[in-house]
C-alpha cells in the first residue's frame, strides 16, 4: 500500500484532540493517523504474533505521537512497521518497540522517522528484540530521513540476550530458573 492510499483511510485527530489507544491481545492491521494542530496520539498495543503497519502524519503545529508496541512471538513471523512523518513545526514523536522471540519466531521490525523541510521538533525511535532460542531470527531497520535543521532525529536499536548474571541473581534469591527468566522477559516488555 502506498502513501496516497494509506492517507485515504486515515483517522484524523482534529485540532486539540487527544486519542489514547490501548489494546491487549492485538493481532495487527494497517492504520494511518493524521494529526492536526495540538493534537496528541498515544497508542500502546500488546500481543503475540502481531503484524502491523502504522503511519503517523504530524501535519499540525505542536502535534505529538507516542507509540508503543510489545510483541511476544511464539514460533511465528511477526512484523511491525511504523512510519512517522514530521510535517510541521514543533512536532514530537516517540516510538518504542519491544519483541521477545521464542521457538523459531522471526521478526521484521522497521521504524522510520522523517523530517520534511520546514518542520521542527524531535523524533525518537527505540527498538529492541530479545531472542530466546537459537532458531529465532530478527531483522531490524531503524531509519531516519531528515531534511533541514529543524528536526533532531534519534534512534537506537538492539538485539539482546537474557543476561545470565541477572538470572543467577534472581535464582540466588530463591526463584526457580523459569520464573527468573519470565521476570526478566516481563521487565523487557515495558
Amino acid at each position: 500500500m502506498n502513501r496516497k492510499e494509506i492517507r485515504k483511510n486515515a483517522i484524523y485527530l482534529e485540532k486539540g484532540e487527544t486519542i489514547e489507544i490501548n489494546e491487549d491481545k492485538y493481532k495487527g492491521g494497517v492504520l494511518a493517523f493524521i494529526l492536526k494542530e495540538n493534537s496528541v496520539l498515544k497508542r500502546t498495543v500488546r500481543g503475540k504474533n502481531i503484524s502491523e503497519t502504522v503511519w503517523v502524519f504530524l501535519e499540525g503545529k505542536k502535534s505529538s505521537a507516542e507509540l508503543k508496541s510489545f510483541i511476544e512471538a511464539d514460533g511465528k513471523k511477526v512484523r511491525s512497521e511504523i512510519h512517522v512523518e514530521h510535517l510541521a513545526e514543533k512536532t514530537i514523536s516517540s516510538v518504542k518497540t519491544r519483541a521477545v522471540l521464542d521457538n523459531g519466531a522471526a521478526a521484521g521490525i522497521k521504524g522510520i522517522i522523517s523530517g520534511a523541510e520546514g518542520s521542527s521538533g524531535n523524533g525518537s525511535l527505540d527498538e529492541k528484540v530479545l531472542i530466546l532460542n537459537d532458531n529465532s531470527y530478527a531483522e531490524m531497520q531503524p531509519e531516519l530521513e531528515i531534511q533541514g535543521t529543524g528536526i533532531t532525529g534519534r534512534h537506537s536499536a538492539g538485539i539482546e540476550r537474557i543476561n545470565e548474571g541477572k538470572v543467577f541473581y534472581l535464582m540466588s534469591r530463591g526463584m526457580g530458573k523459569r520464573d527468573a527468566e519470565r521476570m526478566i522477559i516481563e521487565g523487557f516488555l515495558v
Partner: peptide
C-alpha cells in the same frame, strides 16, 4: 545538517539469529 536544503538519512539493517548475539545501534541526526 547545516542548512535547510541539506539532507541526512540513515538506513541501517541489523540481522541476528540465535540466543547468544548482542548488537546495538544508535544514531542521531540534526
Amino acid at each position: 545538517v547545516l542548512d535547510e536544503k541539506s539532507h541526512s538519512n540513515t538506513y541501517p539493517k541489523i540481522k541476528a539469529k540465535g540466543k547468544k548475539a548482542s548488537v546495538s545501534h544508535e544514531a542521531s541526526v540534526g
